[in-house]
Design a protein around this nucleic acid. Structure first.
Lengths: 239, 239
DNA sequence: CCGGGGGTTGAACGATCGTTCGGCACAGGG
DNA sequence: CCCTGTGCCGAACGATCGTTCAACCCCCGG
């Protein structure tokens, strides 16, 4: 690999290693640490943790392999940082969406489904990593990430159960429907390709809509004849 | 790792390496090849392809590392065999279920959801491998497996679209609902633990039920008041 | 001007990786 | 009886792995 660059000498002007900007890079991070995190997400999402070497990550970040150990305890520590931050971003975004949503089961479900799908669309590589490389985490870091994942699932469970208790959702299996929704939304990161026929907004809207069907959404006050389809889709040409 | 065995000398009585019996082990397989396949599924499902060494697989199969190369071209070839067979089992089972099902969208959807969930429950490790280690496959073998996966998805798409065309399913987004269903059913392999509170049959039944809600199942002939819930659940105490 | 220190480097460590190879054990046909 | 072939083994190959280390560069306070 590492082919010679045809133009522009590899001279690095010091302290500007590579392109940052990922959802797991936080504003307070040092430049090189941010570049390493970003590079790790990029490369590990493709080849996996064990399929990616420290040299691969360092090369993608534009630094020497040894630099990694000045910013992280180990390759494992870098993975732990990425996964922990990724789950943190997801949970926080979901919490905020839930907090801002009105006291209505359908609106709440739409809110958290929207956030969940959007995060998995926009932070696709981080999500992919978080879903496939948990097994590469050592016990301590794994417990932290799993705890956050449970928190995320619990938020969905609560919304669906509440909707059922109020009679707005009619599914006889709230917890299973809830898990099926999160599973389906999480899987978006596995198939979505940025150049596809649907925009992110369209995908989000569709998943929100189908998720409401999944929980058996039946608006209160109206017994609703036929199906619940009429209550939806005021605007927009569906296809 | 290779700790000395305290009792029972490692003497092998030739030609009886280890315990076989996995869904990707076929009847015509030689004993040692079967043991290697079975061991590969077991170990790789836990640590991933790159996280598993040839020595790990050989040890789990009770043979020497060199034996692997008498039955497979390489470690990569062994993975290709496992994944290819796994997808083949899934697609064939779904095809047969579809063939045996009556000409009714709801019954067909129940049939293929049932098979899909059951395969992912009973062949959990193979499924886990197939969902997370496609990236470790080289181009040729990958194309084969991806083609089979597309076939599987197409069967779901066709059933859902047909149900919509007949007015039995009311979802405005058949393809998205279809993909959400397969995603959710596939994810079963990621969370199911054999000792859990629900039996496999119960999980299958619940997923069938929720899947029908997901596509907006509204039985024909009856405009159905309230929700579709009444049409279901004749027997069995739901919870 | 000088001195110090954090960030970076190339080189090297032992360990383990996938793979190969020569030879051994043993069943079956002459 | 021997001879052949098949399946298995231990040992070893070079490559690459994660990690360490001493030296270096360059910015910054004095």
């Amino acid at each position: 690999m590492a082919s010679p660059e045809p133009v522009a000498p590899p001279r690095r002007s010091r302290g500007a290693p590579a392109l940052p900007a990922t959802s797991v890079v936080f504003p307070g991070d040092e430049r090189t640490a941010a570049a390493l995190i970003s590079a790790a997400v990029e490369v590990m999402a493709v080849h996996g943790y064990h399929g990616t070497s420290v040299r691969d990550i360092a090369a993608a970040a534009g630094v020497s392999p040894a630099v990694l150990y000045h910013h992280f305890a180990s390759k494992q520590g870098l993975l732990a940082t990425v996964l922990d931050r990724g789950m943190d971003v997801l949970v926080r975004a979901t919490e905020e969406a839930l907090y801002a949503a009105p006291d209505d089961p359908a609106a709440r479900l739409e809110a958290i489904v929207g956030v969940h799908v959007r995060v998995h669309l926009e932070s696709q590589r981080e999500s992919l990593l978080g879903n496939s490389e948990l097994r590469a985490l050592e016990a301590g870091a794994l417990a932290l990430v799993v705890a956050r994942r449970d928190t995320q699932q619990r938020m969905f469970d609560r919304v669906v159960r509440d909707g059922c208790a109020r009679g707005v959702f009619t599914t006889p299996h709230p917890d299973d429907a809830s898990r099926m929704i999160t599973s389906a939304c999480t899987a978006v990161a596995a198939w979505y390709r940025p150049g596809g026929p649907l925009t992110g907004d369209e995908i989000v809207a569709r998943y929100q809509r189908v998720a409401l069907d999944t929980v058996g959404y039946a608006p209160v006050g109206e017994p609703a004849s036929g199906s619940s389809a009429q209550r939806f889709g005021g605007a927009g040409g569906e296809r």
